[in-house]
Design a protein around this nucleic acid. Structure first.
Length: 300
DNA sequence: AACACATCCTGACTGC
DNA sequence: TGCAGTCAGGATGTGT
C-alpha cells in the first residue's frame, strides 16, 4: 500500500516526465476516481485540457502538481491500490486504468486503481505557513498548498517537521502509539507497513499508550521512523503485492528489508522469537512478542 | 479535543 | 469446481 516512500518514488518519476508538457486530451473510464472533484468528470476535463504541470510536490502521501493556471493544482492520492503510470501513447492497454491523459511530449499518464480508494481532483492552492509547502527539489520552492491537503501535517522527512511540537501533542494522547503515528494530522506519511517497522526498531508495542512513553523514547521512535522512510525511499518503496508500482510499472525493493510487516511466523531478526500478527483497530499489526511488550510503568 | 466506529472498494484467497 | 465469505486498509465523516 502506498505510503510516503511509494508516493515519493511516484512524485520523482512524475517530476522527470510530465512537467511543462501540454495536456492534449483526457479520457475518463471510471468517474469514481474523480469522486473528490466537486464538478465531476466534465469539469475536470475542461480544467485540465490544454494546461501543463509546473512542479510535482509531495507532503506525506499526497502528491500535487500545480497547473499553469494561477492558483490551481491537480491533487493525487494513491489510496490503497492507486498507480500513476507513465507510458508511451502506443503502449499496451493495462487493467484497472480509470483515467488517462495524453501529453504533448508523446507520453501518457495513466491512473490505475483496483480498489478505488485513490483519487484525483483539481483543487485551489492557498498560501502555507512556513518556507515551503512540500517536497519538490527539482523545481523552485513551492509556497502554496491545495486546500484539501492543508490539514495534513508535515512528514518526518520535511525540513520544517517540528519534532518537539509533535511530541507535545502526543503527551495528550491516550490511544495506542501506533494509532497516533498513523494520524496524518499529527505526522503524515506513515502507514501500516512503516508503522510496524518503526515500532519494531523502537521495541515498542503497538498498543502502548502514547502518553506513557517518555520524551526520550519518542525521540528514538521518530529517529527510527525517519530512517525507515528514507531507507525505503532509497529502495524505491515496498512492493508487498501487485498494488504498488513506480511510474514505469516496476516494483520497489524495500520488502527485502522488512523485519515485522508480513513476517508472521518468521523468527525475529533481533531475538529469534516468532513474529506475531494481531488484528487491531481493523488493521493487521505485526510485532515481536518478546521485544515489543506493553510496559505498565512510564517508559524511559 | 480525542475517541470509536462506519463507509468507501474489488481482487485474491480460504473453506466447505 | 464453484460459490460464499473474509481480508487487505487510508482517509473521512458522524456521533459521543
Amino acid at each position: 500500500m502506498p505510503e510516503l516512500p511509494e508516493a515519493e518514488t511516484v512524485r520523482r518519476g512524475l517530476a522527470l516526465t510530465v512537467l511543462n508538457s501540454k495536456i492534449e486530451d483526457i479520457e475518463v473510464f471510471d468517474q469514481r476516481c474523480l469522486k473528490k472533484h466537486p464538478g465531476g468528470s466534465e469539469d475536470f476535463q475542461n480544467l485540465m485540457r490544454g494546461r501543463s504541470f509546473s512542479a510535482a510536490v509531495r507532503r506525506g502521501k499526497f502528491i500535487w502538481m500545480p497547473l499553469d493556471i494561477e492558483g490551481f493544482a491537480l491533487v493525487m492520492h494513491l489510496g490503497m491500490s492507486g498507480q500513476a503510470l507513465i507510458r508511451t501513447q502506443d503502449y499496451q492497454p493495462e487493467s484497472q486504468v480509470r483515467l488517462q491523459m495524453n501529453l504533448e511530449n508523446g507520453l501518457q499518464f495513466r491512473f490505475s486503481d483496483q480498489r478505488l480508494f485513490g483519487s484525483l481532483m483539481v483543487d485551489q492552492l492557498q498560501p502555507v505557513e512556513g518556507n515551503s509547502s512540500g517536497y519538490s527539489p527539482e523545481t523552485e520552492v513551492q509556497t502554496e498548498i491545495p486546500s484539501s491537503v492543508a490539514h495534513i501535517a508535515r512528514d518526518p522527512l520535511d525540513a520544517e517537521f517540528d519534532l518537539d511540537s509533535v511530541k507535545r501533542k502526543i503527551k495528550n494522547r491516550t490511544a495506542g502509539i501506533k494509532h497516533v503515528i498513523l494520524d496524518q494530522q499529527l505526522v503524515s506519511g506513515v502507514g501500516n507497513i512503516y508503522a510496524d517497522e518503526s515500532l519494531w526498531r523502537a521495541r515498542l508495542h503497538f498498543n502502548q499508550p502514547a502518553n506513557s512513553i517518555s520524551s526520550r523514547k519518542l525521540t528514538e521512535l521518530f529517529s527510527h521512523i525517519k530512517d525507515v522512510l528514507s531507507e525505503a525511499v532509497e529502495q524505491g518503496g515496498t512492493s508487498f503485492d501487485q498494488q504498488y508500482k513506480n511510474i514505469n510499472g516496476q516494483s520497489g525493493y524495500f520488502s527485502q528489508n522488512l523485519n515485522a510487516y508480513g513476517q508472521t511466523g518468521k523468527p525475529c531478526n533481533r531475538c529469534g522469537r516468532l513474529i506475531a500478527r494481531k488484528s487491531w483497530e481493523n488493521r493487521g499489526s505485526h510485532f515481536c512478542p518478546a521485544c515489543q511488550r506493553i510496559r505498565k510503568q512510564k517508559l524511559k
